[in-house]
Amino acid sequence: MLEGKFEEASLLKKIVEAMKDCVSSCNFNCTENGISVQAVDNSRVLLISLLIEKDTFEEYRCDRNITLGVGLGSLSKIIGNGANSDYLTISADDDADKLNIIFEDKVKDKISEYNLKLLDIDADLLDVGPMDTDATITLPSADFAKICKDMKVLSESLQIIVTKDSALFQSVGDIGTGNIVIRPKTDIDHPEESVTISLDKPIDLSFGSKYLSDIIKATSLSQKVTIKLTDQSPGVFEYKLPSGYLRFYLAPKFDE
């Protein structure tokens, strides 16, 4: 039996919103330590890795490992029915064909209960082991989202060039070009506004703008995003959860 109670429905809402345009359905793997997901988009370019650790939940129990195949569009519709501040409890029996979803209003005496039909999903898993990292950039997630949106008006590719003291985001398109440079900054009063860049090797990588548009849908999950880049390798974009993470692995573009 699985039972997990979120202090606020908004957290699961944000997680599902961040994933559903990239993958339509995925397996939620539930263990005594928490819930994890690995899912790849249809084009095999973008991979989502989600970990919701047990400590994220107000209450959590999972007696036996269970895999729950979930249609994210359907889950999103049902979760959308609850208020952001509601308690949200998900539960499933060991051999369940449905996920039970309960919202509890914290003020009114109101409980809403839904069942989501589960799917049998046969998905390939990729072996994403520990990766070397040449450069790590941490910046406010809203700033990164704005950079991606702004650069997308120019080109379907975004080039990221990292040197010792700056990260350059560059777009070259038919109508013109754009450059945005960010530099490390420590903001003691507003640590969430700080920018850090650590570098072992300079980086010059290009990524597809449309995939970055999917990634930045996770912006509301965390005030910061950490971008890990390695020469000629997928970029890793990580949004931390209160306990766990939502990570995206994005395959780079190469010169033809």
């Binding site: 370019v45 991979l47 898993l125 990729l126 590719s157 997928p234 395959a251 010169d255």
Partner: peptide
Amino acid sequence: KKAQSTLLSFFGKK
């Protein structure tokens, strides 16, 4: 013009 690679070039299947 740049070509999009896929993750299968970097990660093996489990």
